[in-house]
Amino acid sequence: MKIEININNNIEIHEVEPRVTLLDFIRDNVGLKGTHAGCEHGVCGACTVLMNGEAVRSCLVLAVQSMGDKIITIEGVNSEDSESGLLNIIQDAFCEKHGLQCGYCTSGMILTAEALLKVNTSPTREEVREAISGNICRCTGYVQIVDSIMLAADRLSKRNTSPDKS
């Protein structure tokens, strides 16, 4: 089947079998490898992408289902909201607070954080924990991930309230 999906603001047109998941479509058809497969049965969250602004698991969506939806992957996450041009505030905070080790769950964590901070600009640590509870990280024990997201939230709210947006 020929399908068209908006990924990171590009219209991707590819011929795929209906059985191809959005995860495999992004990785194999589009060639963006930043979205990772951890379990392929919906439990680990490594494959998380943004669909119309909300975090979803790309292994639990068929590519054909997402025709008409707007998908953002880790590669596109800084395009809408980039201060330095390279990394956005959340990515920067993950670097600074070392919210990762092996980096395998990281894309999913960052996109989940994106979705959270869009609707809750000043979450408590508990709210952050709840929001990322569907993303398993085996390396970090989550503490530095929560630190990263709290730092990002703080910076985002400061940026949003200060008149000078630099």
Partner: peptide, 13 residues
């Protein structure tokens, strides 16, 4: 860290 937060790790898959 910077390569992992931007999805630029080089994993075998």
């Amino acid at each position: 860290n910077s390569r992992f937060v931007s999805g630029k790790g080089n994993f075998v898959a």
